[in-house]
Nucleic acid binder design. Structure first.
Lengths: 123, 123
DNA sequence: CTTTAATTATTACACATGTAATCCATTTGT
DNA sequence: ACAAATGGATTACATGTGTAATAATTAAAG
C-alpha cells in the first residue's frame, strides 16, 4: 500500500510563492523563482503542474492563461512537516533539535517571551 | 547536478536502532523493527544495505554474519533534518512550529530548564 | 558428505522527485 | 494571412524510495 504523496521540497518553493500572493500567473511564479533557485522556466511549470495534480494548487482560466492559487493552508502544511520530523526522531532526544531551532532562527522578543511562557506552563 | 542523497524516512528507523545499540546483527535489527513497523524481514535488509551503500552504516564480519554499526552521528543527523525543515519554511513564521514542538513532545524537567536558559541568553 | 536452513547479494517494480525538452494550440506581430 | 512567440500538455530520463522476491552461498544438521 503506497502512502499519499506529500509536497516535495522543490514544490514547497512554489507553494510559498502562492501563499505569499495569489492568484498568480505561471509567468509571475516563474519570474519570482528564477531569481531564488537556479531553475529553468520549464522546471517551474512542471512543479506547478504536479501541485495541480496533487490538488495542492488550483487555477482559474483567464483567457488562454491560468492563474494559480493554493488549495492547502500554509499553517497546516507547516504543522504536517513538523509532525513528520517529530515522527522521524520519535523516541530520541528532542531537545537538541529544539536547541537548533532556538539558536538558528530569528525570533522577536515577543516570540521569545511567548515560548518561555509555553515552557513555564509545561513544567 | 544531482544533490547528495540523504537518509530516507524508512532508513531512519534502522539508524535509530543502531544509534540505540551497536553493533547489531541484521537479525537483531529485524527483530526490533518487525515489532514497530509492519515490514517484512527482506524489506529491512534492503534498508540496511542501502544505508551501507550510502556510507551511513558500516559492518564487521563475524564469521558469515555481519554486525552493523552507524557511521553517522545521531545529533548531526537530527540537526541536518532540522535545518532542512527550517530551510523549507524559511521566511515564514517559525513560532507556530516551535509551539507545536513544545506542546507535543515529552520533555524532561531538565530539558525544559535548559531550553529556558537558551531562550534567556537569546534575549 | 549431502540436504537444509540461514544469510548475504542481486534483481524487481511502481511511484516520487529533480530537472527539463518537445509538442501543440493559440495569440500576436508584420 | 502567415510566421513567430508564448503558454499549456505531454513526454523524458536518471535517481530515490517503499516494498519486497529470488538467487547464491555457506554453515549447520543429519
Amino acid at each position: 500500500m503506497h502512502k499519499k504523496p506529500g509536497i516535495s521540497e522543490a514544490e514547497w518553493e512554489v507553494m510559498k510563492v502562492l501563499w505569499g500572493k495569489s492568484p498568480q500567473s505561471s509567468n509571475a511564479i516563474v519570474a519570482i523563482l528564477e531569481g531564488k533557485r537556479n531553475w529553468q522556466p520549464k522546471t517551474i511549470r512542471t512543479l506547478i503542474n504536479r501541485l495541480v495534480s496533487k490538488n495542492a494548487v488550483g487555477f482559474e482560466k483567464d483567457g488562454r492563461q491560468y492563474n494559480y492559487y493554493p488549495l492547502l493552508n500554509e499553517q497546516e502544511c507547516i504543522q504536517a512537516e513538523t509532525r513528520s520530523l517529530i515522527d522521524r526522531i520519535r523516541g530520541k532526544a528532542i531537545k537538541p533539535l529544539l536547541a537548533t531551532f532556538l539558536e538558528e532562527e530569528s525570533l522577536s522578543p515577543e516570540d521569545i517571551a511567548e515560548l518561555k511562557e509555553i515552557l513555564e506552563n509545561r513544567t
